[in-house]
């Protein structure tokens, strides 16, 4: 039923470079409104580079990225943000010179319809307690929560989450899974990068598998069982 609507985000022939090194070689992915789509792949496959290229954070890039019908490949990242895309980076990017509340309030509102600060604190009660602590004094899990929380306020509809479970304890990973499901219910569209396949399986509608800067496979969550052997091979598990 999803297939009928035009995708919210459509990436075609995306190429990206860091200086002279050619990292992405024609990546193509679609994300439809309301979906949670996961990019899987081994270390160095180009998942982060894909996300950053969509966000406009890789200087040298070509191909096509179309968001809600607009071609955004040549836009600067601040303009892409204003169009309604927000990133939660792999290294989390919590600012040490800002306290928790300032970190939370930092990203400017780009559209109406984001969560209110109260709603965010309900979703992440830990953050409220630590409102005035220095951002980087939080635990790894709390910092991850904060990195997700701060992009929910802005009115962005498409969230790019880069390995939100990396280096976190199972309990926290579970909490993040619950959060992502709630965000999906709230109508957010999510492009998720994950190496933790078991986690991704609990939240994602669809998976793309990346290798050496290319998408080598696409799998629906409903067909997951029959593809497990193949997936394990891709990911080298």
């Amino acid at each position: 039923m999803h297939k009928a609507q035009a995708p919210m985000l459509s990436v075609r022939n995306l190429e990206a470079w860091y200086g002279e090194s050619h990292i992405l070689h024609g990546v193509g992915i679609d994300v439809r409104e309301g979906e949670v789509v996961t990019l899987l792949g081994r270390n160095g496959a180009g998942k982060t580079t894909t996300i950053k290229s969509i966000m406009g954070m890789v200087n040298k890039r070509s191909g096509s990225v179309s968001y809600e019908g607009q071609e955004i490949i040549s836009w600067p990242s601040n303009k892409i943000a204003r169009a309604g895309i927000a990133i939660c980076p792999e290294e989390r990017g919590i600012f040490s010179s800002l306290n928790v509340q300032e970190n939370l309030l930092l990203p400017p509102q780009v559209r109406a319809g984001g969560l209110s600060v109260d709603e965010i604190y309900t979703l992440f009660p830990n953050l409220k307690e630590r409102m005035y602590s220095q951002g980087t004094k939080l635990s790894g899990g709390e910092q991850q929560m904060l990195a997700i929380a701060r992009i929910l306020r802005t009115g962005a509809r498409l969230l790019l989450l880069d390995e939100p479970t990396e280096g976190l304890a199972p309990v926290i990973i579970q909490q993040i899974a619950v959060t992502i499901k709630r965000l999906k219910e709230a109508g957010f569209t999510i492009l998720l990068v994950e190496q933790n396949f078991r986690f991704a399986a609990t939240v994602a509608d669809r998976f793309y598998v990346m290798e050496s800067g290319r998408v080598i496979d696409e799998i629906e969550n409903t067909n997951l069982e029959s593809n497990l052997t193949k997936l394990n091979e891709y990911l080298g598990v």
Partner: peptide, 11 residues
């Protein structure tokens, strides 16, 4: 601290 990220937030 991190100009690229602040820019990616829309500033």
């Amino acid at each position: 601290e991190n100009p690229a990220l602040v820019q990616a937030f829309g500033v």
